[in-house]
Every structure is written in C-alpha cells, then in structure tokens.
Amino acid sequence: MNHEQLSAIAHTHHPVKAPLDDESVRRLLEQGLPRGDERILDLGCGGGEWLLRALEAHPRLHAEGVDISPDALDLARRNALRRGVGDRLALHHRSAGEFSSPHAFDLVLSVGASHAFGGLLPTLAAAREHLAPGGRVLIGDGFWDREPSPEAVEMLGDFADLATTVDRVVAEGWTPVYGHVSTRAELDAYEWACWGTIASWALDHPDDPDSAQALETAAARRSEWLHVYRDTFGFLTLLLRRTAD
C-alpha cells in the first residue's frame, strides 16, 4: 500500500488534512472570505476539503486547486459533484510550485503543505505570486510548543517556536489579521482519527494483502506521536495580508 492510499484511508473521518476541527475551519474561511464572491486558490489542495467547504458556504465563489496526486484530485472532483459545487471548481494536476494562472486570486490557501515548497517562508513567497492586490493568504504550518528532542526535529522538521514563527512571517512583509493555534483537543483528535482509521481498516480487512502493513503503520505512527512529538508539536494557521506592496 503506497503513501497516497494510506493517506486516503487515514483521512476518511477527518477530511481536512490538518489538526483543525470543523468550527475552526469555518471561522478561518469566514474571516478569509469577507465578501463571499472571491476567487480562491489552494496550493496543495489534496482532496479539496477547504475549497469544498468554502464553495458550499458561498454560492458566488469560484475556486481552483492544485495538487500532484491524481487520486486526491479525483476524490475532490467526485465530492464536488456530489455536493453540488462542481461547476465552480477547477482542479489542476501539477506541482504547486510550477502552477501559473492568467488571473490573480483574492484568497490563496496552503494549509499543511509547506513541505511542497521547502518551508513556511518559501510557501508564502509562492502564494504571493498568485495574490490579487488587497488579497489574503491562509497558511497553516507547525511550530514547536516546547523544546523538541532531536528525534522530533528529524521526524517533523526544523520548526521555530510560536513567537519566532510569527516574527519571521511579519519580517517578510506580512501582517496577521487573524489566526488560530490548534488546541490540544484538535491535535489529539487529528492523530487518533488518522491512525485509528488505518487500524480499523486493517482489522476490517484481514484478508487484504495490505492489511498487515497497514496495521503495522498505524501502530508505528501512533507510537511516534505519543513518544516523540505529542508534547512538543503545535500547529498555527494564519490569515495574512501584505503590509506593503
């Protein structure tokens, strides 16, 4: 079973691929879409859940998503049709870093996808290339809530603490106009959902040739979370505007 297949199973009951609950997602989108008729872009959209929820909430909205996974884009396309918003969603199968568009966007999202650009600040630089004057960027990435172990840094990346993360964003010419720090409940719910869903799938499909691998993966990832990074990792989602262009 490859990574995409595991990810699809893991997010069956938590389609937003980040540690945010439904109310947090709703509130962030509400702040990011003050008019309700914006054109929005998600760089690294995966299954497109952020875009689908925005389109459902705002019938005058138009959205585009970019991702390298054809399976994720197929899922987004099917769900968009099922939820009645397919006519206002365009999906692009390509690297987010290579995407170009003839028009700019009022809101550019990239939540939990900074690895595709090499970190938070490169992600912001990429988002800026697509941003209309006066537009907003909604970005989510990790930070260290406490001093991490070397093992945690090697596993998840070289994040900064919360204050330093925000300071670095501001130093690049961005002004936070809203934000959300994921709660312990959101962080835990996300991890339990991902690894519990994979484990349940394995137990429900004992004759599948991938069942043993899936169960081992769920156990290993659950152990890494509990023993390596649960007490140190945090997640920050920021709504940003340019300080000056």
Rank of each mutant, 00 (worst) to 15 (best):
S211L: 02
G234P: 09
T197F: 03
W225T: 04
G44F: 00
L29Y: 00
L81H: 14
D204I: 02
S114P: 06
E49Y: 02
H58T: 07
S100I: 03
D141M: 01
T12M: 10
A219S: 09
K17H: 15
G173L: 13
R77W: 11
V228L: 12
L6I: 15
R78T: 15
E56N: 11
L124D: 00
A212Q: 14
E154M: 14
D245K: 06
H93M: 08
G234R: 05
R230T: 06
T217W: 15
T165L: 05
A10L: 08
F143I: 09
S114D: 10
H103K: 13
E172K: 08
G84C: 14
R82W: 09
L51A: 01
E172D: 12
P148R: 07
H11I: 11
E154T: 15
I198H: 07
R78F: 07
S110Y: 01
H11S: 12
P70R: 08
P133D: 06
S200V: 10
G86L: 12
S7K: 11
V228Y: 06
V169E: 02
A160S: 14
E154H: 15
C194N: 07
A126L: 02
G97E: 01
A8K: 11
L43A: 05
A126V: 03
A126W: 01
S114L: 01
S24T: 15
D87P: 07
L43S: 04
Q5R: 10
R184C: 05
D21T: 10
Y190A: 08
H11M: 12
E98W: 03
W225L: 02
L162M: 01
P122I: 07
L138M: 11
R128N: 07
A193F: 10
L52Q: 08
T165I: 06
D207L: 11
E147S: 10
S114H: 10
A171S: 15
